[in-house]
Design a protein around this nucleic acid. Sequence first.
DNA 1: ATTTTATTGAACAGTGTGTTGTATAATGTG
DNA 2: CACATTATACAACACACTGTTCAATAAAAT
Lengths: 202, 202
Amino acid sequence: MAEKRRVDRRIQRTRALLRDALMRLIVRKGYDDITIQDITDEANVARTTFYLHFGDKDELLFSTMRDLYEDLYAASGHEKTSSWFTDDIDDCIADDFEHVQDYSDFYSIMLSERGSAAFLTQVRGYLAEAIMGDMFKVFAPTEVEAKLPHNMMAYAVAGAQIGVIKWWLDNGMEQSPKEVAFMLEQLLKKGLIWGLGADEKS
Amino acid sequence: MAEKRRVDRRIQRTRALLRDALMRLIVRKGYDDITIQDITDEANVARTTFYLHFGDKDELLFSTMRDLYEDLYAASGHEKTSSWFTDDIDDCIADDFEHVQDYSDFYSIMLSERGSAAFLTQVRGYLAEAIMGDMFKVFAPTEVEAKLPHNMMAYAVAGAQIGVIKWWLDNGMEQSPKEVAFMLEQLLKKGLIWGLGADEKS
DNA sequence: ATTTTATTGAACAGTGTGTTGTATAATGTG
DNA sequence: CACATTATACAACACACTGTTCAATAAAAT
């Protein structure tokens, strides 16, 4: 372990300041309206310093997203056994919704008209990839039987999940993460199983 | 009919020029990178003139979207009988996919990281509303039996549809509009019928 | 303790913004 | 057709943000 050379403390500190400043500003005024001046002012950092670390606002956003999803991945744990295709499916998705709940201010803006297209595209891609992984984990050798392309189903499910997150956030998050996860699962599972050709086995 | 007072030809012409310029520029360089200067240059219109009609880039985009969806609505026709909950469901959705095909250059960019968050949010909202309309049209008085909130299902379906459009565009549109529509239908219909509590009737 | 390097603050030209005022030209109307 | 209306063009403006350079300073690594 610890193969990477340790990163200068000043770098870590500056990047963290910029990341936190960005997230505060997103909630306060939406992504588009944020200038690099805003970020460096909010972070109490010289504007020149920003350019030592990131080329533009989007680069900082992507870096921020990586931090955020390392968090999520660490929390939900490597030893995750649940997935879209096991009986405890809702445990798996519930982790996602809990994460959204933790950062609900952030996601409320980022999934609104004041958010970022790049962000949405990245998130959809992440989700779709994860869902594809689940599909192959469970039905690895059964590709031939599938009635719909794995890719297509993954994007549909990812889109649906984002749609439900949007609905949940816009309607006061009246359900618990587990409940929304269960609702999403109920709506999609039958179609998914069919699409995978898994209803004909077992 | 013809109740509205006719709009000055110059206004119609200018707005059309700006709209077309915007759509060309979106394909050429993505939404974010477009400046108002770009638009007016491309449209051969004075920059001051832009501000006579729109407050900012987003206003022009929204106006452009209205034009676009008037088009779609006119094409698919008022007398549309098919919907998400009739047997010819795929006719209904196929219209959407045909529209996407007609403007595939435009949508390829707008649904990518070079698109616009406001656009995506609007489209999802439109779709969800239309889907809700379909649900109430067919199962008007059965709200009580529904196992999932209509709102929630509408947003899930809208998200899934956008996800599939994204997948379709990114993978060379190898299927016909009707085929993709049918695929999406197959994936979602069972869950939807169940969610509406409609599987217990009939 | 010394070297290395991240940060600062000032300055710079370049670009886009949103607005104002006057002149011009196209349009609608009687 | 002639007239009044009004949309557009053009130039000029102050303002804000950008992205870069440079010398000076401060902090970290070793």
